[in-house]
Design a protein around this nucleic acid. Structure first.
Ligand SMILES: [Mn+2]
Ligand SMILES: [Mn+2]
Ligand SMILES: [Zn+2]
Ligand SMILES: [Zn+2]
Lengths: 142, 142
DNA sequence: CCCGATAGCAAGAATTATTCTAAATTCATG
DNA sequence: CATGAATTTAGAATAATTCTTGCTATCGGG
């Protein structure tokens, strides 16, 4: 899962053929930044962080990289209401809890052994490709 | 719950004080259109439908009316990814299933007796104010 | 009924996250 | 090294939504 710059390998046929994604310096740095601080940053947040290592990167490239990482399932895009999209490198199935008090978005695990069909009356024959569970609330310490 | 034009009543102290929303012709028509065809229309869809009855209504007013109805919990706003918001007059707690084949968005009921805490490992002390469950997939007939 | 105050509406401009365009650069491959 | 494909960049364009402003409707008290 640790991806290397593609310059070191052939495009098709080695480790990252799994994802089929060419790992450029920009994509690598965007991905590294997402792993380093898992606070669900926006594209602009990522842009600012990535500029430390790649001062010439453009915002359009950050969007391109994020889109590529999402398309190849290395990163998930998280949308709350109509706010700017956020990005999450946690690949386990999980939901998100937005704490209105602090603004922090927490990952929320599913309880083990629970499946969607246990909880929802899905339409007959529905094949689910994507699940999005977003919660808003407050963290009230007892 | 059936709201009347406010001209027939005082602003504070009668039936729609429950919601505190003054029912203008525009809000009434927007709400009526949502109840009449429960296909989760966008603001622009609502605009086009409402123009039959109110040819001079503006899109900004449709947005204002939808915002007012949502703020007073008569209508829910439904967001899939970054697509235009859709609007749903079903006030029961429910999720949404977007059928990629037809583009139709279906309401999805929760199974009776299930609560979020049964399914998710919520952060300690989390008080949930809003739940959003959005599914994407295909309706494959067996 | 009349009046001043408040709320809502309409038209168009502004906002802003995101996407697109086009030219330059980088890269894989032979 | 040459070639073509993929990627990056800067800036323009897009589009859903929000904002501004002037007007209209409605409210509630006298
Ligand atoms: Mn941010
Ligand atoms: Mn539509
Ligand atoms: Zn996450
Ligand atoms: Zn619905």
């Amino acid at each position: 899962m640790l991806l290397q710059p593609s310059s070191k390998r052939t495009t098709c046929g080695t480790a990252d053929e799994v994802s089929g994604l060419r790992m450029t310096r920009q994509r690598q740095e965007v991905y590294r930044v997402l792993l380093a601080q898992r606070d669900h940053p926006t594209a602009n947040d990522v842009f600012m962080r990535v500029k430390d290592g790649l001062p010439n990167i453009s915002l359009a490239t950050v969007y391109n990289c994020l889109e590529a990482l999402v398309a190849h399932n290395l990163v998930r895009q998280v949308n709350f209401e109509r706010e700017p999209s956020r990005y999450c490198p946690n690949l386990e199935e999980h939901g998100h809890f937005h704490d209105q008090g602090t603004g922090v978005i927490h990952d929320v695990k599913f309880k083990p052994g629970i499946t969607l069909a246990d909880v929802l009356e899905l339409p007959r024959g529905a094949v689910i490709q994507d699940v999005e569970i977003n919660l808003r609330g407050q963290l009230r310490l007892a």
